[in-house]
Nucleic acid binder design. Structure first.
Lengths: 361, 361
DNA sequence: ATTTAGCACTCGATAGAATCGAGTGCTAGC
DNA sequence: GCTAGCACTCGATTCTATCGAGTGCTAAAT
């Protein structure tokens, strides 16, 4: 091969050589197998790998490498004389050493951008639709966990008397979010007293951040004080976001496509129904420093056949909720991760803007 | 057969003879086939019917009757030499002439009662959990459409200025529900003006029913008037409940059990994702005066293999939302209808109590 | 005039047997 | 160290045979 033009020392050979460990060649074989299996859901044989990879090796050589990879736990064989399937460990290596850059592909990224440029309105609606967007983008079920109110600025806080013994606590945040909690009182309280407490509360909280509002102010009047004391707990509840369900699940129907066993579909669906579980799952994954949890990695049995992709949301640089994707372990990691990251980043930006600009749109 | 005791002219023969039309005997054959098919999902043959029904007839006789029923469109045959399957028309006859009384069986009814005795808290939570209850009770996916605010009494109505050009409309109802809408103004308005408008609005609305609040009061100050005008549209929006999504879907995972074809599961799920469609579906069914829509009866193609059971909610005797069940056409009609009715009735009662007593619990 | 027993027939479902072929592990030679 | 070659495995596919639940029809029985 004569170098016809001296003017390209390293041609555009797009052989991204990222990963040592496991050996250059064995790695690209693994990569080829995982990619292919993700696409076809069929066990991959040595012949296919030989054809697919750039390295020119015979199937026999590939075969011996594959045997090695199996011994090391990256691959598994459904039965003798079938091709190989990636194990969780295999997928893990794949995502950790992705050759494809994890940043989003331009067309999709653009889609996300224009989506966020167009979507306006209430926060809940934005989150809800983000979730749908992410599901549509990836064809996996998505989850959006709304940020708590911890760092939000209070625009107004009020008490409204409903019954003699029950009072509604209203918290209006400067981003237009409204939260509420019903407080039951031990003894009946007059409306006028509630109103007085409300004024006091509002004056105290207005303009502060949610974190800064405890302790509540006190009053000379015992009756007013009683109301304030009763409200205390609910204020904290609201601060921590325990009051409204703030999980948005998008595209659960995608699960029916992602898994072929109907029983799997059922069990995964039923998990998505339990919002608490979902929230804590995402939190755990994030806390463990991962962005992807594959198979057993999150020690959550019922989702052993799933992979979870998480991207954090942040407001003012602090973590605030998350977006996630739920699919089979053989999911399109590069694309899905890219999408989740893109939506996460973009959504974070809008949340920031929202918060600092004030209200909607 | 000598009447051994003159003292029972018509013994406790539980032969509920409800339905003329179609002929007594043919009806009970149809009934037997439908019941059995609902249970087993297998085509039912003449032999099975002969064994199952009380009437002592040979399979041959049954057979000729079945042939008739098929010609009349109540039954269908998957293929020659298989048993019969009910058609939509067959199911329709079945539910219209239910021998089992549609009122709930006592054990379940009790469950519903104690559930509602125990559940307290925000309206949204009650509805959400009702939906889950209904799904658990029946093993079908359930839907609860929240009542609109039309007949609710306004406890307070306020405007909160968020940005110079955007105002938050807050509506607090006497049942503790809070609704909101963001109103964008054409020109920047000072906070003081918004506050003035808020006071005016609150004074006008407080204590009235949502239906009675339009038209809004007017003001001498042009600035205040401008705000009120801008708010008008959102008030109506809120009144008609267009502002927050008020559909609660329960137990979608049940669908995976109810249908065996995974493709069906997917398509039904994806329909449940579109709340607008679900709401209008239930409304249509109710408007057509039915409580059950089987197969094609609601002209909604994608749900042709489903049956929909609807029970209305009512507040002060006026229709206000609905609860629904979604399952395969071969669903356990008697039990499911009973459950839906029970939950519907009980929930209605709680809603009434809530509204008239005032706040929560 | 029904009802029923009897019978030939249909056709999906089930079970074996045969075959195919993608894939494997191993070995010997390049 | 790589590869060609080869015997071997084993699920998937196809084909055939068989089974049996169920049907429609007819002729006898009530």
């Amino acid at each position: 091969m004569p170098p016809s033009k001296s003017k390209r020392p390293v041609p555009a050979s797009s052989n991204t050589k990222t990963s040592p460990a496991l050996g250059e060649r064995r790695a690209s074989i693994l990569d080829a197998i995982v990619s292919r299996y993700i696409g076809t859901a069929q066990p991959v044989g040595s012949g296919q790998v030989a054809d697919a990879t750039g390295l020119h090796l015979s199937s026999a050589t590939i075969r011996s490498e594959m045997a090695q990879l199996e011994q090391e736990g990256y691959l598994a064989q459904p039965h003798t004389s079938a091709g190989r399937i990636p194990t969780d460990k295999g997928y893990r290596y794949f995502v950790d050493h992705l050759t494809t850059p994890t940043s989003a592909s331009t067309p999709e990224l653009k889609k996300v951008r224009t989506f966020f440029d167009e979507v306006h309105g209430e926060l809940e609606e934005v989150l809800e639709r983000s979730s749908t967007l992410l599901a549509d983008l990836t064809s996996y079920a998505s989850v959006v966990v709304a940020p708590g109110h911890t760092s939000s600025q209070v625009r107004s806080m009020q008490l409204v008397s409903l019954e003699p013994t029950s009072v509604l606590l209203l918290v209006i945040l400067s981003d237009g979010t409204v939260d509420k909690a019903t407080v039951t009182l031990d003894t009946p309280i007059e409306e006028a007293v509630v109103a007085e407490a409300s004024v006091l509360l509002d004056a105290h909280c207005r303009g502060r951040q949610m974190v800064d509002i405890s302790p509540l102010p006190s009053s000379n009047s015992p009756a007013v004080q009683a109301v304030l004391t009763a409200v205390q707990a609910s204020v904290i509840e609201v601060e921590q976001g325990a009051t409204n369900d703030h999980v948005f699940v998008g595209g659960p129907s995608k699960l029916a496509d992602a898994f072929d066993a109907v029983e799997t579909v059922r069990s995964v669906l039923s998990i998505l129904e339990e919002q608490l579980v979902v929230v804590s799952l995402l939190r755990d994954v994030l806390n463990s420093g991962l962005s992807v949890a594959i198979g057993q990695e999150h020690g959550f049995e019922p989702l052993a056949s799933c992979a979870v992709i998480v991207a954090p949301l942040s407001i003012d640089g602090k973590p605030a909720g998350a977006v996630g994707l739920l699919g089979p372990t053989r999911m399109q990691y590069p694309a899905a991760m890219a999408a989740a990251n893109a939506v996460g980043a973009e959504l974070s930006e809008r949340l920031n803007r929202r918060k600092n600009d004030g209200g909607a749109a």
